[in-house]
């Protein structure tokens, strides 16, 4: 299938990537060739069930028992910005 610049822009928005015009153009071309290569799958007729899980397991559960959490300092140790024992982000519009 053909992929348009507009679709690239839509995908970039969904992926939260800001692309320069040059990047958009390059990616349009690259995605085009990757998808041309992936289009081979569409020619394959199959009624097989999709494989959704890599292992055969089922009903893998945990008991409802409390275990210690990390300390707030460990939780926040990598935060780019923290204040009042919280992560800080630009004001969200309410």
């Amino acid at each position: 299938m053909a992929i348009t610049m507009k679709e690239i822009e839509h995908l970039a928005k969904l992926s939260r990537l800001a692309l320069s015009n040059e990047e958009k153009e390059r990616l349009t071309g690259e995605m085009q060739s990757i998808l041309a290569f992936a289009d081979k799958l569409s020619s394959l007729e199959t009624e097989a069930d999709p494989t959704m899980f890599a292992a055969d397991g089922k009903n893998v559960f945990r008991k409802d028992e409390v275990k210690p959490s990390l300390s707030p300092s460990e939780i926040l140790q990598n935060a780019p910005q923290a204040d009042m024992e919280c992560f800080v982000v630009p004001k969200t519009v309410e």
Binding site: M84, C86, P90, K91, T92
Partner: peptide, 15 residues
């Protein structure tokens, strides 16, 4: 949860 301090230009996140 997002917490909004009065008048602040940022929000706080509590998980």
């Amino acid at each position: 949860k997002l917490l909004h301090a009065e008048g602040a230009n940022f929000s706080l996140v509590d998980y």
